[in-house]
């Protein structure tokens, strides 16, 4: 683990050596809709340090994007509401900050990369304008200086002929190039933490790899924290340090990346891993977790996964499992591993 790279201009009580950059504690998010309350996030805890990559894995509706939006402070409120929880960024609870304080952090210290760059970029403003805006608003640079910086940034994310293309509009770029522009925008002010919400989902497989490599490289270069939100287990393996698996608004398992692939400690994680197509199983039927993700207005009692779980017992239908510290057979603690399953021992140790 590395130290926080820059001495901050504000006193940071908790941001010493090794202290996490971002720490989410017992976060709850609900949406008040006409049909009732949707419990999107039900007590999420995770943390990211500088230079570290956390992958948040889950199906659609598992709450991985909502958590990210809550961290960024871009949830629509109302209908969204954060009834409980804390989000510490460099030691300060962002949920207690004023709107203006949070705005200043957004984009400069905390940046986000969205899934579909075509719709996430403003169609009627040139990419140079949209990049330059970061410098003009946050650093008060002139239009001209901001433009020069934008060209520099476009070079940095390896957009060919940046100087000639700075005045082009988003629709004039290819999907991969557009995503590079999104990355450049997030990177503009060298933030401490970047949240990438399915950054490669909308791209071709070959382009996906390029974008992930670029992201990983830039992260190393700037020693940033990175939260990578994805449903693609393949993307995660190469770049992430640790993984948090989400289900129905909760983290059901977290683990260092390779441990999770080797020995999942939650039936849901195991189901996900088993459903990856493998070459040595060619011709066999692909495994799929049966059933559907729960309706967040009516999350099943007990463990939310119990209706789909092959190991479910009576206790799973009544008691919500807490995130247990996962240990070896002999009781030795496995650092950074947790599983929210009543039968985690049976799952990991067979």
């Amino acid at each position: 683990m590395t130290t926080n790279e820059t001495p901050a201009n504000v006193p940071e009580p908790a941001a010493g050596k090794g202290a996490p950059l971002l720490e989410v504690r017992d976060l709850h998010v609900e949406f008040h809709t006409r049909d009732g309350v949707v419990n999107a996030i039900n007590g999420v805890n995770y943390s990211v340090s500088a230079g570290e990559t956390l992958a948040v894995l889950g199906e659609s509706g598992s709450g991985k994007s909502v958590t990210a939006q809550a961290i960024m402070g871009i949830l629509d409120m109302p209908p969204g509401k954060i009834p409980k929880g804390e989000i510490f960024f460099r030691g300060d609870d962002m949920l207690r900050m004023s709107d203006e304080e949070r705005r200043k952090i957004r984009g400069s210290k905390l940046a986000m990369i969205f899934q579909d760059a075509l719709s996430a970029l403003n169609p009627v403003l040139s990419v140079g304008y949209q990049l330059g805006e970061m410098f003009r608003v946050h650093q008060g640079l002139s239009r001209k200086d901001a433009k020069a910086k934008s060209i520099e940034l476009m070079d940095r994310v390896r957009i060919p002929a940046a100087k000639a293309r700075v005045n082009d509009y988003p629709h004039q770029f290819s999907g991969g190039m557009r995503q590079r522009i999104m990355i450049a925008m997030a990177l503009a002010l060298e933030p401490d933490l970047i949240i990438a919400d399915e950054p490669t989902t909308a791209l071709d497989v070959t382009v996906q790899a390029q974008i992930m490599d670029l992201l990983a490289e830039l992260q190393r270069e700037y020693n940033m924290g990175l939260i990578l939100i994805t449903h693609d287990l393949g993307v995660v393996a190469d770049v992430a340090d640790k993984i948090a698996v989400m289900y129905a608004g909760r983290i059901v398992e977290n683990a260092p990346v390779h441990e999770l692939y080797k020995r999942p400690a939650h039936p849901y994680t195991r189901g996900l891993l088993d459903s990856i197509p493998r070459l040595d199983q060619k011709g066999q039927e692909l495994y799929a977790i049966k059933g559907l993700p729960p309706n967040l207005q009516h999350i099943p009692a007990g463990c939310a996964f119990n209706p789909r779980c092959t190991m479910a017992q009576d206790v799973c239908r009544t008691d919500v499992p807490v995130l247990h510290q996962v240990t070896e057979r002999d009781g030795a603690e496995l650092p950074g591993r947790g599983s929210a399953c009543h039968f985690w021992k049976e799952t990991i140790h067979g």
Partner: peptide, 17 residues
């Protein structure tokens, strides 16, 4: 409700902008 508005907010742009 457009995505690019969300992006602009995520970029830390002030509301008037």
């Amino acid at each position: 409700r457009a995505d690019y508005i969300r992006t602009a907010i995520a970029k830390g742009m002030p509301k008037r902008r």
